Simulated assay, not measured.
Amino acid sequence: MSTLEEHIDVSVPLDTAWDCLHRSEAYPQFLDGVREARPEGEHRMHLDIDAGGRPQECVVEITDRTPENVMSWQTTSGPDLAGTFSLLPLDEQHTRVQARFEYDPGTIKETFGGPQGFAQASAIERGLRSDLEQLKQWVEGER
């Protein structure tokens, strides 16, 4: 598995950022490639994604570690992907969102197409940064 970590600071309190991350139906607004997201029970969500121009479905299992403000996720169907969002309070009105994305390069190539190796890692890094920028805009607009 390969791992990528990025972070962004948002101008909202930690509780606001935490609540926004748990609104799965809003994921298409800030996660590129997610066409639709809907909750399936308390700790699962169903995602309709665009996988290299092909529609695909996956189910994601969510695990919260509330005292540490960590939300971990793992696909249980579809491409084998996992990640974590960690929220760190900077002050009363600002929060750092740290994203960790774990993936198998072969799975990414097979599922989404595109380059391999360094070019693939660069593309995933750009995508994660873009998603975090969109998350920032959406979260700050929700206040």
Rank of each mutant, 00 (worst) to 15 (best):
H94K: 15
R96S: 02
E142M: 09
H43K: 14
L31E: 06
E36S: 13
E110G: 01
P79I: 08
T3S: 10
A123E: 10
G117P: 12
E6T: 08
A119Q: 08
P115H: 02
H7T: 10
C58P: 02
P28T: 11
D104V: 10
S11R: 08
L128W: 04
E36T: 15
E92V: 08
T84P: 01
L132K: 06
T107W: 04
K136V: 06
S122P: 00
K109P: 00
A17M: 13
H94M: 10
S86H: 13
S11T: 07
Y27S: 04
L135K: 01
G52Y: 03
W18Q: 07
L90A: 08
M45Y: 12
E110W: 03
D104R: 05
I62N: 15
E102R: 10
V12D: 03
T66G: 12
A119L: 13
R96T: 00
L4G: 00
G83S: 01
Q93C: 08
K109L: 11
D48K: 15
I62M: 14
Y103P: 07
I62G: 00
T84N: 03
A119V: 02
D32E: 10
E110D: 14
T107L: 04
F85Q: 09
H94I: 06
T75R: 02
H22T: 10
D80P: 01
L87R: 01
Y103Q: 01
P67C: 01
L87H: 02
D80C: 05
E36C: 06
G53Y: 09
D80Y: 04
E125Y: 06
N69F: 12
L14K: 02
G117A: 09
I108R: 05
R129E: 10
D131K: 07
R35D: 11
K136H: 07
F112Q: 05
Y103H: 13
T16M: 05
P89Y: 00
M1S: 11
P67N: 12
G114E: 09
G113I: 09
V139T: 11
G83C: 00
V10F: 00
L90P: 04
D32V: 06
V70K: 14
H43W: 13
T3P: 01
E125R: 09
T111Q: 03
G141V: 03
G52N: 02
P79Q: 05
E25T: 12
Q56M: 13
D19R: 11
H46R: 15
T16A: 09
E36P: 08
A37Y: 01
M1W: 03
G33A: 05
R54F: 03
D19F: 03
T76V: 15
Q116E: 13
F30L: 01
Q98K: 14
K109E: 14
E42K: 14
E57N: 12
S130W: 02
E36M: 11
P115D: 10
R35S: 13
D32Q: 13
E61K: 14
D64A: 15
A82Q: 10
S2R: 13
S24A: 14
S2Y: 03
Q120G: 05
Q98I: 14
S11A: 11
L31T: 15
H7Y: 06
F30W: 14
G141T: 05
Q98W: 09
C58D: 05
E140Q: 03
T75V: 07
S24H: 12
G41I: 07
V12N: 02
